[in-house]
Each structure stands twice: as structure tokens, then as C-alpha cells.
């Protein structure tokens, strides 16, 4: 019963976001709200087992939802801007020294590992290639390794982000 309610409510909210500006009840018309309720119920019946597969509702906590927004608008945007200036520099000068390294992520849940891999892909000079399923290690392609760094066996998650402490943010959000 709980998966059905959660899925229907999320689908209803998403429909309301899609049809914003259609009428006079705040931003919506009555027809669209009724259609949203019906579509939400149908979606809840169909998709409840896919949407709530892990039976774990910790992501519904409002503090976590708000901190995702703060994370995207703050530290993530800073790292994304820095990544693009870095790529622009590499494109113009052609100064690359690539390699694939191993990274101890230290994340326990799958959602946190996914967020870390996406953040790594969109932050300076790094691209996640593969994942070791047993101990949650990531393999990362780095576009410019400094001299002598390639001798190290494995890296820690905090070492590759320079300004912001991205792994601590992800741990706070998703674990």
C-alpha cells in the first residue's frame, strides 16, 4: 500500500509541474488537477514495484530533498564550471597525459555510488569507466596525471576533487 501511495503522489506532482500555467486555481485549472489525480492513480498501479524496488523510503525525508537542490546549485555548479575551463585549456593546448586509476569510493548504497559516478563524470578531468561490483571501487579515466602519481595503487574519493568536498555531500544526501 505504501509503494502505491508514494508512486501516485510523485506522479501527480510531476504532472502538475508539467502543466503549470493552465488556469486560475493558483497556476492550474480544475480539469488538469482532476486529470492529474487520475493519471497518478493509474501510474501508481502500474509502476509501484519498479519505483519503490528497494522498500526503503529514506529519500522522502525533506532535509535530503532540499540538500539535493543545494548540492546541485552550489558545489556541483562550481566543479562543473571548473571542469569546463579545464577542458577548454586542454583542447586549445593539446597537453594531455591520460591514464586509468582505481578509486576507493567508500559508498555503501547503490544510489550514492551512482551519484558519485555522475559527479565524477561531470567534474574536472575525470570520467568513470567501470565499477568493481564486489567492493564498490570505481575505475576512472583521468585526462592529465601528474608525474609520479601513476605509481599509487589506489586513490581515496576525496583526493580528486580540489575545491569542494563532494563525497561528504553525497554521503550526507544518500546514506
Amino acid at each position: 500500500m505504501i509503494p502505491f501511495i508514494v508512486t501516485a503522489f510523485v506522479a501527480f506532482l510531476f504532472y502538475l509541474v508539467l502543466v503549470v500555467g493552465s488556469g486560475s486555481v493558483l497556476f492550474w485549472s480544475w480539469e488538469e488537477i482532476i486529470a492529474g489525480v487520475i493519471i497518478g492513480l493509474v501510474t501508481g498501479v502500474i509502476a509501484r514495484k519498479i519505483f519503490c524496488r528497494s522498500e526503503n523510503y529514506r529519500m522522502l525525508h525533506p532535509v535530503r530533498l532540499i540538500s539535493i537542490l543545494i548540492y546541485i546549485c552550489g558545489p556541483f555548479l562550481v566543479e562543473l564550471t571548473k571542469a569546463n575551463l579545464d577542458v577548454a585549456y586542454r583542447v586549445i593546448t593539446g597537453n594531455v597525459r591520460p591514464g586509468i586509476i582505481r578509486l576507493h569510493s567508500g559508498m555503501k548504497s547503490d544510489l550514492a555510488l551512482t551519484m558519485l559516478a555522475h559527479s565524477i563524470t561531470l567534474t574536472p578531468g575525470t570520467l568513470s569507466v567501470d565499477v568493481d561490483g564486489k567492493n564498490h571501487d570505481l575505475f576512472i579515466h583521468v585526462i592529465h596525471l601528474d608525474e609520479g602519481v601513476e605509481k599509487k595503487e589506489a586513490f581515496e574519493a576525496g583526493e580528486i576533487f580540489s575545491y569542494m568536498n563532494i563525497p561528504a555531500w553525497i554521503r550526507r544526501i544518500a546514506e
Partner: peptide, 18 residues
């Protein structure tokens, strides 16, 4: 401009998304 597929992925993913 970049030499192999991984470095090309760096350029295309980050820069075109931004």
C-alpha cells in the same frame, strides 16, 4: 582534435553539456 576515444568523451560530454 583529441587522440583516442576516452579523451574525446571528456571533451564531448563536459563541454557540450555545459
Amino acid at each position: 582534435r583529441f587522440p583516442d576515444v576516452y579523451t574525446r568523451l571528456h571533451a564531448s560530454t563536459k563541454a557540450t553539456t555545459f
